[in-house]
């Protein structure tokens, strides 16, 4: 089955990928492919948009209409694509630095508009491609090449940020929880409006090494042992949730969708 999935959705000529051994991104890329397969979507009707960074290389490996854009701007490019072709399924793959630092403005405004697209964040808590600098999701106190004395920044909760900005669907998966993550990506794609699935990836090369948290197995084991499903988390106290990562569907709202609203503008203007 995995081989079939790869044959159908990966551009074999452009593999192997550049990701490090043990990187969580490969698993997450496969999750995206599996979600699309499960939904039975037309490959020609999918436009995959990415920015710059480790995660963004996924666009080149996956066999859809793909565009690898500039750092932080994937959502802005995707906005133009979606408005020009509302019939396309627009999926953005972006990293934590890409979407929450340099591209943070586009994230909140696309969420505010509730424009129909699905953003899958490959969050590895670090800038991998440039060699291990702290990102807006690096936990306070952690180490990075630009936080040699420990990170004093407070991290963003990307899913909560998107929800607060107006996203109508938010969820969190992990590299470890593959079946769940596939399900969440499917829900996100099917959801009409701005959906964001934050996926905790693992970066053994920089994040694990810099923080003495071990390799891929140890980082994934952490995900296995410290994640709490959102429905269960609702009944837990703040103290009980300390040090845990809440996964599953986080929010779902019924807001008007942007391209649908714009269709009404066109009707009004043409009267």
């Amino acid at each position: 089955m995995p081989a079939e999935l790869i044959n159908k959705y990966m551009r074999e000529a452009h593999l192997p990928h550049i990701w490090c051994p043990g990187c969580g991104h490969g698993i997450l890329m496969r999750d995206v492919a599996q979600a699309i397969e499960d939904l039975g979507l037309d490959q020609n009707k999918i436009c995959l948009v990415s920015g710059i960074g480790c995660s963004s290389r996924a666009a080149g490996y996956m066999d859809f209409n793909t565009i690898h854009t500039t750092h932080g701007r994937a959502i802005a490019f995707a906005t133009g694509i979606k408005l020009a072709r509302p019939d396309m399924n627009v999926i953005v793959i972006a990293g934590d630095g890409d979407i929450a630092a340099i591209g943070g403005n586009h994230l909140i405004h696309a969420a505010r508009r509730n424009i129909d697209m699905t953003v899958v964040v490959f969050n590895n808590d670090i800038y991998g491609m440039t060699g291990g600098q702290f990102s807006p999701t690096t936990p306070t106190g952690d180490f990075a090449t630009t936080a040699p004395y420990g990170n004093i920044d407070r991290p963003f909760d990307i899913a909560a940020l998107a929800e607060a900005a107006g996203a109508s669907y938010t969820a969190r998966g992990t590299a470890y929880h593959a079946p769940l993550t596939i399900k969440l990506i499917k829900e996100g794609i099917e959801h009409k409006g701005f959906s964001l699935i934050e996926c905790a990836s693992v970066c053994p090369t920089y994040y694990g090494r810099k923080n003495k948290k071990g390799g891929s197995v140890e980082l994934m084991t952490w995900q296995k042992e410290n994640c709490v499903m959102s429905d269960k988390a609702q009944h837990m106290s703040k103290e009980e949730l300390e040090g845990k990562l809440v996964i599953g569907r986080l929010s779902e709202k019924d807001y008007p969708e942007y391209t649908e609203q714009y269709k009404k503008i066109i009707e009004k203007a043409r009267k």
Partner: peptide, 16 residues
């Protein structure tokens, strides 16, 4: 939301 995204959206629409 800004000038940068305006240029990005224009390119996005054009490739579409």
């Amino acid at each position: 939301e800004d000038e940068i995204s305006s240029m990005a959206a224009v390119i996005g629409a054009s490739v579409a």
